[in-house]
Nucleic acid binder design. Structure first.
Lengths: 115, 115
DNA sequence: GCGTGACGGTTCAGCGGATGAACAATACGC
DNA sequence: GCGTATTGTTCATCCGCTGAACCGTCACGC
């Protein structure tokens, strides 16, 4: 399981603890089996607790609540992610610059066009 | 096979046609098997031709040369990639902004710190 | 020429993660 | 109670990737 998935899941649960697994899976763009697996991982880490109450109108299923250590972990992951994403951003900037130059070069000498 | 791999491979071959498959695989960060598969795909598309001459000092192996239609395809892919990467760049910008706000919120209320 | 070693391309059994259909458990309405 | 609907859980299956093993070829020494 990637950090990305773990983080997105914690993020989702922090704001919407009463969402069923199928919907969570759909929202994160992963399969039901994988989501279930990730969720169990978070639970066994003690970051999430499955309370069997609530779920507004419908009493089935669980509510997946972040534990205090889960909240802490989410904070840590958030900061780590910010840094990671900023690095990706910079790298993407470089890639784009390279691509721009390549495209520019193409437009300089469109010699070998069709025909 | 991803477009990314396809593009990177064409890019590599355009500048260094006389590189063996093991080295190409290492440079692209993929396995030998996958590289071979991708290369065959490009060849069967008529974008790359394996000439069995050259390879400077050492006469073994092939030189993988881009055909005219391969050059054309590379140009198309380059432009498509520039657009895609720019979109990613924008999206990443958004994500970073969101993360910044989350981090900011954390620093506002570090109430539930350890102890 | 022949043998041999090194190198490069090709193959494919095996691995690992992801999938989602099927199953089990629970709550609801009657 | 019973049937149905909803949800969590499992696991056979798939699929792409891996890299060790294999085969052909070339260069060198004899």
């Amino acid at each position: 399981m990637t950090d990305e998935t773990r983080y997105q899941l914690l993020r989702r649960l922090a704001t919407n603890p009463d969402t069923n697994q199928r919907q969570l899976a759909a929202e994160l763009g992963i399969s039901l089996g994988k989501l279930n697996y990730c969720l169990q991982a978070l639970i066994s880490k003690g970051w999430v607790k499955a309370g069997n109450f609530s779920r507004s109108s419908n009493k089935k299923g669980y509510a997946y609540l972040l534990t205090p250590s889960g909240i802490e972990a989410k904070a840590r992951l958030t900061i780590a992610f910010l840094h990671r994403k900023m690095a990706e951003y910079e790298q993407l900037h470089q890639e784009i610059e390279t691509l721009r130059q390549e495209v520019h070069a193409l437009q300089q000498k469109p010699a070998e066009g069709p025909q």
